[in-house]
Every structure is written in C-alpha cells, then in structure tokens.
Nucleic acid binder design. Structure first.
Lengths: 149, 149
DNA sequence: TATTGTTATACTCTATAACTATA
DNA sequence: TATAGTTATAGAGTATAACAATA
C-alpha cells in the first residue's frame, strides 16, 4: 500500500507524496514481463545512451553516479543484452556504450507506459491542471539543477 | 549534479523530474549537521510515530515495509536516541515505539526545512501555480493509493 | 602524468525464511 | 494456534580506495 496520509490523518508532505507517486512506477516496471530482469536503474541508463554511443565516464556524469558504479551497472546490462560495448577507435581507453535493438525496444516500451500513465493522470485531474503540474515540476527541477549543478 | 535534460536536450520525463526534486531533499538532509547520522528512512519513521506510541507491526504497515526491516530500522534509531522503545503493558509481545524529545526536535527541524523549501518554490513558480501543483500531486497519490491499496 | 576504466570492498536499505516468545 | 518481534541471510544499488591500461 502506498501511504498518502501521515499520522492522525494529517496531509502527507510533498516528499511522501512524490515518493508514493514514484513508487507507482517502480511497481509498474516490476510487475510487467520484460522477458528478462529489468530494474529502474537500467531504464535510467537506457535513457542516457545516445545513438553514437557514450563513454562510461560521461555516462556516469549524466547519471550523477560514480564511474565505478556505472561500469558495473553497464556490465550487467551488456549481459542482459540491453546495451553493447566496444572499443572507441579514437581512444583505446574508452569503452563505448551503445543501445542494442533490444535495449531500444525496452526503452520505447517503457516510454509508452509513462506516456499512457501521464494521459491517465491528465484525465483524472484535468488536462489544464496537469499541464500546470508538469510545468511547475520542470521549473523546480531546473531551478534545483541551476543551484546545485 | 541533478540532471533535468535527457539525451539530445529533450525534456526529461516526469520520473526524472521527480527524482531530481527528491534528490534535492536527500542532499539537504545529508549536508546539514544533525548532531548524529540521519538518513531519510529515519525521517519517514519519525513522521509516523504517534504520541501514544506504536507497535513495530503497525509501524511497518504505515511505512509500507516488512516488520523485519522496520524492527532493524527502529533498533538503529533507538541507539541514535531518536526513538525510545518499551513494553506495552497491555500486551507483553509488543515493543512500543515512541518519540524521544530529540526525535521530536529532529522531526520538527526537518519539517521546518520542508516548509521553507515549499515557500521558496511557491515564490519561484507563483503561489497559485504552486497550489495547483501541490493539489494535483496529492490527488495523484490518493488515486494511486486507491488503486493499489 | 592525466585519464579511462576495473577490481576489491563496504555500507544502506530492504526483502525472505526460519525462529522465539507471548497471547 | 495465531500474533509480535528477532536473527540470519541475501541482493540491489551505490560509494571509496587502490589499481591497470592507454593517452
């Protein structure tokens, strides 16, 4: 159960609310059959791999994690067939991470689920209110990135 | 750095945005000096302990986690002095978890930080837009709870 | 030397399974 | 027997430190 009320029935604060909504997606990913183990960390990676490929160090920066952790994560995803890795002909040190067709399909299917969910949400709260919600969320994230990044 | 743009500068989707905003709070908690180690799991617990105390099993349900995990978490928090535990006089099996004065102070201070942040956000995006954002977020969380809970 | 990436290790958070103690 | 809680163990996700290979 996702809680939305705090103690004594008081309104949950923003953090609990966001956490609950995010939990909805974790459940969505976990309960669907993807043909192989799929974790949300995989999806975050898939969304950051450009067509031309990317080095572990750059990918780790995009993901906001260490290159060590990123390297391990990618190794697991190569074994699952979600990404491929190869040498960069221009720099022998670089492991160039690319999307496999399967990785691309998985990413697209996930993005469809997100889009479906957003349509359902917009229907539930009203398209105009949802548009405001979405815009405010983006502005808050951008503000935060400006301060910390 | 909290990312807000996906690959090729495309807009990040809702999940990345929420994740980024939540990350802001994780950083806020991590960088402040609380006098002892404080993790976000602690804060979630503190927010769910009523004045009259609560049993581990009930607390675990409020938190949406197993009673085993909840018991461990509470044990650590007792050592930190954030909560106290005692026997329930009405049922000898029950470990009654209560807030210590220190736990209450920590919770209040955290809630002040949340309130300050929300005021800053409302100022940044406009009070009316922020009110819509907040209301939509609550409705989505409630909707989700109704479906899954 | 600086940079890319790996290996080794550890910690947080949480789960499942098997258990003990009390009702 | 049913319920409250603990102990043991494991796995995801990530970090830091020390290292190897290439530039």
């Amino acid at each position: 159960m996702t809680r939305v009320k705090g103690q004594d029935g008081a309104d949950a604060h923003v953090l609990e609310l966001m956490g609950g909504v995010l939990g909805h997606f974790r459940a969505l990913v976990a309960h669907e059959d993807w043909g192989h183990p799929l974790r949300s960390s995989h999806l975050r990676v898939l969304g950051q791999v450009p067509d031309e490929g990317i080095a572990i160090t750059d990918l780790s920066e995009r993901l906001g994690m260490t290159k060590q952790g990123c390297g391990q994560l990618v190794t697991g995803m190569v074994e699952l067939g979600l990404v491929g890795d190869g040498k960069d002909p221009r720099d022998g040190r670089v492991r160039l991470v690319t999307l496999t067709p399967q990785g691309r399909r998985t990413l697209e299917r996930f993005e469809q689920r997100v889009a479906e969910t957003e349509r359902a949400w917009a229907g539930a709260v009203g398209p105009r209110r949802y548009a405001t919600f979405r815009a405010v969320l983006r502005e808050l994230a951008e503000d935060d990135a400006r301060r910390t990044g």
